[in-house]
Simulated scan of single mutants.
Amino acid sequence: MSGAIILTLSMGIRHGFGLWLQPITQAQNWSRETFALAIAIQNLVWGLAGIFMGMVADRFGAFLVILLGAVLYALGLWGMAYASTPLMFALTAGVLIGVALAGTTYSVIYGVIGRNVSANKRSWAMGLAAAAGSFGQFLMLPTEGLLMHWFDWQIALVVLAAAALLMMPFAWGLREPQLRIGAGHVREQSIVQALREAFQHRSFQLLMAGFFVCGFQVVFIAVHMPSYLRDHGLAPQVASYALALIGLFNVFGTYAAGVLGQHLQKKYILSAIYVLRALVISVFLWAPLTPMSVYVFSAAMGLLWLSTVPPTNAVVAQMFGLAHFSMLGGFVFFSHQVGSFLGVWLGGFLYDRTGSYDVVWFIAIGLGLVAGLLNLPIKEAAVVRQPLAQGANA
Rank of each mutant, 00 (worst) to 15 (best):
35 F>Y: 15
10 S>T: 11
169 P>F: 07
261 G>R: 01
132 A>T: 07
251 V>A: 00
24 I>R: 02
106 Y>G: 09
329 G>V: 04
299 A>T: 05
134 S>H: 15
262 Q>K: 04
19 L>K: 06
97 I>F: 03
34 T>F: 10
356 S>F: 01
228 Y>Q: 14
189 Q>L: 12
278 A>W: 01
39 I>H: 05
22 Q>T: 14
19 L>G: 05
71 V>P: 02
139 L>R: 10
54 G>A: 08
377 P>N: 08
352 D>G: 04
134 S>G: 15
374 L>S: 05
368 G>D: 10
339 G>A: 01
89 F>C: 10
312 T>S: 14
145 G>Y: 05
122 R>Q: 04
171 A>C: 07
307 S>F: 05
192 V>M: 10
380 E>D: 08
52 F>P: 00
120 N>Y: 03
52 F>V: 06
108 V>P: 06
184 G>W: 13
172 W>P: 02
222 A>T: 13
65 V>N: 01
117 V>C: 13
197 E>D: 12
59 R>V: 11
307 S>N: 10
95 V>C: 10
350 L>A: 11
89 F>Y: 15
73 Y>A: 14
59 R>L: 10
321 G>D: 03
131 A>I: 09
286 W>I: 10
79 G>K: 10
187 R>L: 15
70 A>S: 15
237 Q>M: 07
130 A>D: 07
223 V>R: 00
5 I>Q: 01
229 L>H: 12
82 Y>Q: 03
272 A>H: 04
318 Q>H: 12
267 K>D: 08
10 S>K: 07
174 L>H: 14
91 L>E: 02
45 V>E: 05
369 L>C: 03
374 L>M: 04
357 Y>D: 00
106 Y>I: 13
291 P>R: 08
12 G>S: 13
214 C>Q: 10
305 W>V: 09
371 A>P: 06
169 P>N: 09
313 N>M: 15
88 M>R: 07
311 P>N: 12
201 H>L: 04
262 Q>G: 07
207 L>C: 02
207 L>D: 04
53 M>Q: 09
296 V>L: 15
306 L>R: 14
231 D>W: 07
363 I>N: 04
117 V>F: 04
392 A>Q: 11
12 G>H: 06
312 T>G: 11
351 Y>D: 01
322 L>W: 06
375 N>G: 02
143 T>W: 12
335 S>C: 14
376 L>E: 05
64 L>R: 14
93 A>F: 02
98 G>H: 03
111 G>L: 00
151 F>W: 11
210 G>T: 13
124 W>V: 08
250 N>K: 06
170 F>Q: 08
313 N>R: 07
37 L>P: 02
163 A>E: 01
268 Y>L: 13
313 N>L: 15
355 G>F: 02
284 F>T: 09
49 A>F: 01
161 A>K: 08
185 H>E: 13
123 S>P: 10
146 L>W: 15
128 L>R: 03
63 F>I: 07
139 L>E: 07
212 F>Q: 13
177 P>V: 15
12 G>V: 14
66 I>M: 01
303 L>S: 01
112 V>C: 00
375 N>S: 02
98 G>R: 05
306 L>P: 10
99 V>M: 00
52 F>H: 00
21 L>K: 06
259 V>E: 02
167 M>T: 11
106 Y>R: 05
277 R>Y: 05
214 C>M: 09
36 A>H: 00
344 V>R: 03
192 V>S: 11
